[in-house]
Design a protein around this nucleic acid. Structure first.
Length: 470
RNA sequence: CGCGGGGUAGAGCAGCCUGGUAGCUCGUUUGGCUCAUAACCAAAAGGUCGCUAGUUCAAAUCUAGCCCCCGCAACCA
């Protein structure tokens, strides 16, 4: 039995979960369920990134303690993940004491690649943060929120010497020892790697109080990188436990916006710790709405929960796994979604189940049990994380069954009393459907179970269709 | 010359690496069927493959130049 470890990015707890996070979860879940289907032992991590200034400020603004604030958001996140029907096994919180302790131990282990340096940049005393040079120029040197001029300030930070590992990382990426998907992102990362300077990994305590204290320096707090990225191994019990059963991860799912951190900083950390690199980093694109970026100010934000409440988790998973490109930016519109739901889920699949179940039920034909096997092509696509293509393949089979029913005309066989042929025909068709259903399992877990139920024992057509139309 | 992705039927995409009748899904039109959620099956209409030049017997596909859209460029998925 193979050990498979699947991870997702841990969302920052300064707000509610949104559609971008949903992509991580749904993709990772399909992989996890697929490997379970193969009989593998799967560990599937999800979690929450809870430290940092923004979380602290938000909590303060709401007049609640920061602990209460993150607890509430974590509860929301867990509820969100449950709604998506995500079969995770481990939930890691960066405020968990084990995580914090392990994180500090990791820092110590990294110490020979850590140095202290001064950072100089534009700072807003209102926001209590540095802004990038680009931001500075865009605002003409005046903070738009506070109407104050930025000040030139310097502070001391610890830095992680990425440059110690650049060559190793480049080689690993080039040789696909850490496979970055899709390929065009790999090229992007290789280019970015050359320009990646050392990364600042701490902040003065007075500026950042809500975070993991830097071991051996009371005046510094860890900035996000080591705290957040290490979650993938602290949840496994690193460093005090041997994690080689699970690490390296089979696949780490991230959004394209944070790929750079997972493909550069994270591998550098792992190399410094003497740990192997993840086998695959899968990066998905952004969801656009009507061709434009989703944003609160535009007011075009689509809440996954709305989609789920309308047609269920499987419908959500269907659209986002098949019609949203697995790797590139893709468009969501309600019209497209409803279209896919009605034409494909309801008409192609739902109706297929209905007509076949009715045919078998009317003629009192049961399905002798037989185990289906997964087609090679499907397996190969799933193992390349080509979810949308794998789904297309499954759908070709769905359509082929509908076609076969029309060609073989079982209702005619029934009318003519050709019992033997009828049984042969319907059992053959039902077996095909169960083969499809097996492949459908990782994508649409709820539907999968329903189909299994319908076609076991004495068959009766469901009273309410699998995918009811409005 | 910052890096990367893209411009193919009304819409969304595949094909381009390894040149040789331009394909898929949705939508539209017509026909068939009646087991089924007015569902299913078949057929048809619809494209100067961003522009220009070049290589070639032959280019969506290779080369060069140009135009346009989008993403990223140290922390807003």
């Amino acid at each position: 039995m193979n050990k498979v470890y699947i991870t997702t990015a841990i969302p920052y707890m300064n707000g509610s979960p949104h559609i971008g996070h949903a992509m991580d979860y749904v993709q990772a879940d399909v992989s996890a369920r697929y490997y379970r289907l193969l009989g593998d032992d799967v560990k599937f991590q999800v979690g929450s990134d809870e430290h940092g200034g923004k979380v602290f400020q938000k909590a303060t603004a709401q007049g609640v303690t920061v602990e209460a604030f993150v607890d509430e958001n974590v509860a929301k996140l867990k509820d969100f993940i449950a709604k998506l029907d995500v079969s995770y096994t481990d939930f890691v919180r960066t405020t968990n004491t084990d995580h914090i302790r392990r994180c500090q131990e990791i820092w110590r282990k990294l110490s020979e690649h850590i140095y202290k340096d001064k950072y100089e940049g534009w700072y807003c005393t209102g926001c209590e943060r540095f802004v990038t040079d680009k931001e500075y120029e865009e605002c003409n040197g005046v903070c738009p929120d506070h109407q104050k001029s930025y000040e030139r300030l310097e502070e001391e930070n610890y830095y992680f010497r990425i440059s110690d590992f650049k060559d190793q990382i480049r080689e690993a990426i080039l040789a696909d020892r850490v496979l970055i998907l899709p390929d065009f992102r790999k090229k992007e990362i290789l280019k970015l790697l050359e320009e990646s300077p050392d990364v600042s990994i701490s902040r003065p305590k007075e500026q950042l109080s809500w975070g993991v204290p830097v071991p051996g320096d009371d005046n510094q707090t860890m900035y996000v990188w080591i705290d957040a990225l290490s979650n993938y191994i602290t949840i496994l019990g690193y460093p005090e436990r041997d994690i080689s059963d699970w690490w390296p991860a089979t696949a780490q799912f991230v959004g394209k916006d944070i790929l750079r951190f997972h493909a550069i900083i994270w591998p550098a950390m792992l190399l410094a710790l003497g740990l192997p690199l993840p086998k695959t980093i899968v990066s998905h694109g952004m969801i656009l709405v009507g061709g434009v970026k989703m944003s609160k100010s535009v007011g075009n934000v689509v809440d996954p929960v709305d989609v789920i409440e309308r047609h269920g988790a499987d419908a959500f998973r269907y659209y986002f796994l098949r019609h949203i490109d697995t790797f590139a930016d893709s468009d969501f519109t309600w019209e497209k979604f409803e279209n896919a739901y009605n034409n494909e889920l309801a008409n192609d699949l739902g109706n297929l189940v209905q007509r076949l179940a009715t045919l078998m039920s009317k003629n009192d034909i049961a399905l002798p049990s037989a185990s289906a096997i997964l087609p090679k092509k499907y397996q190969s696509l799933m193992e390349k994380f080509e979810f949308s293509k794998a789904f297309d393949f499954v759908w070709e089979e769905v359509q082929a069954i509908n076609k076969r029913i029309d060609e073989e005309k079982p209702w005619m066989l029934a009318k003519n009393g050709e019992r033997i042929k009828l049984e042969e025909c319907l059992i053959g068709l039902a077996r095909e459907l169960l083969k499809v259903n097996l492949m459908l399992g990782p994508f649409l877990p709820e539907t999968n179970e329903k189909i299994v139920e319908i076609f076991s024992g004495k068959i009766t057509a469901p009273k309410t269709p699998l995918f009811p139309k409005n």
